[in-house]
Design a protein around this nucleic acid. Sequence first.
DNA 1: CCGTATTAACTAACCGGTTGGATAGTATCT
DNA 2: AGATACTATCCAACCGGTTAGTTAATACGG
Lengths: 213, 213
Amino acid sequence: MDGTTAIRDPERTREALKTAAREVFAEYGFEGAKTREIGARAELNKAMINYHFGGKQGLFTEVLLEDIREARSRLSRGVASTGSSTEKLAAFVEALGRLSEERPLFLKILSRELIDAGRHLELQVEEEFFGFFGLVQEVLDRGIESGEFRLVDPHATHISLVGGLVWFALTAPLRERLAREGRLPAPSPTWSSYVEHYRELILTGLAPSASDS
Amino acid sequence: MDGTTAIRDPERTREALKTAAREVFAEYGFEGAKTREIGARAELNKAMINYHFGGKQGLFTEVLLEDIREARSRLSRGVASTGSSTEKLAAFVEALGRLSEERPLFLKILSRELIDAGRHLELQVEEEFFGFFGLVQEVLDRGIESGEFRLVDPHATHISLVGGLVWFALTAPLRERLAREGRLPAPSPTWSSYVEHYRELILTGLAPSASDS
DNA sequence: CCGTATTAACTAACCGGTTGGATAGTATCT
DNA sequence: AGATACTATCCAACCGGTTAGTTAATACGG
């Protein structure tokens, strides 16, 4: 009765399904993901998806809500670091880099949803997701106001800021495959080296020129 | 028999199928795209896909080969512009921006393939696609060598360079939907304003500091 | 404690509907 | 007439979801 030998453990079952779902949804997308495959990877009957989550959509929603909340909490911590706007932005890039590296499945799922305009996102997930947008905006606004950054469009800058890192993450699978097959002329950058490069590129790009007020 | 009134026109049929395929593949991905839907949009029997292209995969490959070749030719023209490395890079950003704006379906299809490491790309398409990578590399290498750019990792810079623009394109559908529903706090940047912003961000970010050799 | 009724967790089999592709027959070219 | 282009129909495989039935965990009266 120590719990580890329990044959039936609904909590463990739910976690196993969610873990399998993250893999399969990331690999095949919502429509492409087969409930049979999720069930098989979790070593459970696919009917358990309906039993515990109300269906494929329910499982998808549950997994995304969990991941979005974790991501927001991690990124918030990055932005909330004390210091100048420059330091805050650097901390955010670091946090987003680490998140992209450690949660590639989440990033894949989210990217797929972005491509098809969030077709499979329920309202609740959408609302939760929009919380991301406010995170960086304030740092940029304040940095521009204080003169630490050039006078750039904060909205556009926000897109650029996230774009490079996400793109690095999205192309990672292909680059890894090519590297494995020896078809890459030069070695691909590591995560840490890329994040470092990106932080410098962005911060240099945002720095005011010498002649600015 | 001037051709425009022809009831049967295999060339027109092939084009109609490819046009419909671009829409459907971009919207639903390779697996999600239904041959019935493609046939319906082209106002043709779905058996024509098999007849003219040998199947779903054949049509997909055909469409991608065509689009990749067009994209490469357009981007090559951008890079080949005369002038300094800075001007060449600026021209490339412009060209990529215009391409992303004018060929959103192509970009969607390609992004989906990147996410799943090119699972549906036949070898021929892959080879054709890799040609992209070399395009910017040389401009960056020469710009660094000549001292126009900082001493950055060209591979990483390449990823950053493409990332922002592609991310802008990928999030466009969602941003458009949100704007339509009035759920966006601030208006989203237009294509031209974003490209302009991005060009400046990158070129500023790559510029050597005053103290550099 | 202890048998037993009740509930919760789980499985195997099945369902209507849809998929990409094949095939047979028809129309329209040269 | 013979090749080419096209349609209507069919098919095996597969999809997500449901269902009836089984077993493990739990509540409870004695």
